[in-house]
């Protein structure tokens, strides 16, 4: 137990702070070299957003309400996508992250079907960036080839950087030191990232809040993204 779970990365999203502005969506594109869509592919449902903001209207005018909810990979402890992959391209790493190995993926897309949150995206073609847009590419994140699945990684490259820095400096990673691009950008500070194994971390405290829920929790997927519902 101890070796496997030195850290258990998790996120808490305060829906009372979230405005649905989608800064997180753009930040994710910038950080993770997401393939560009075009009008045709977008119309076909092939635009890639590792994090998206689901919006629902409830009720009829004038008593109509809008619900916003950022949805990213929930990094489930019991991830339904993992066992179904025939080639181990997706698995749970030692820190509880649900990782995707692009090189190993053969593209059965079974994981995509089995993800109840539909946060997995497929590369239908090799991605193309017209010169010189590629200058913006984050060298810490690999470019995915056509035919493989991809999804939110909790910005594993940032986690690794921070862990390496901490190791070099012979200290522990401090709470709040790691921020995935989405959480980093969030103007309303709705997203908090941290270590569930540290009971004092902000994310642990938020996860224990009375407002805390998890998406489709009833499926037993044990997601590591906690949604704090609106209200006092």
């Amino acid at each position: 137990m101890s070796e496997r779970t030195k850290h258990r990365w998790a996120m808490a999203i305060d829906l009372d702070r979230c405005t649905g502005c989608q800064a997180c969506v753009a930040a994710c594109h910038a950080e993770n070299n997401l393939p560009l869509s075009d009008p045709e592919s977008a119309a076909k449902g092939r635009a890639v957003h590792w994090i998206r903001v689901d919006r629902y209207y409830e009720g009829e005018f004038p008593e109509v309400k809008v619900k916003h909810m950022p949805v990213l990979c929930q990094q489930c402890d019991e991830a339904p996508c993992e066992p179904v992959c025939p080639v181990y391209a997706t698995y749970q790493n030692a820190e509880g992250l649900n990782v995707q190995v692009y090189n190993r993926c053969v593209g059965t897309r079974y994981c995509g079907n089995n993800c109840p949150y539909s946060v997995r995206f497929f590369n239908w073609f090799d991605p193309v960036w017209p010169e010189p847009l590629q200058l913006q590419h984050n060298p810490d994140v690999s470019i995915r080839m056509g035919g493989v699945m991809e999804k939110c990684t909790f910005c594993i490259q940032r986690i690794k950087r921070a862990e390496n820095d901490a190791k070099d400096e012979k200290r522990d990673v401090a709470d709040g030191e790691i921020q995935p691009a989405c959480a980093q950008s969030c103007p309303a500070e709705a997203m908090v990232f941290g270590d569930l194994n540290d009971p004092e971390s902000k994310v642990s405290r938020m996860a224990g809040s009375g407002r805390s829920t998890r998406l489709l929790e009833e499926l037993g997927t044990k997601p590591k993204v906690f949604y704090l519902q609106r209200g006092a």
Partner: peptide, 15 residues
Amino acid sequence: KTGIGVAGIRRPVFW
């Protein structure tokens, strides 16, 4: 040659 995307499959209808 072109990629599996020439088929009509898409997210979420992966199969």
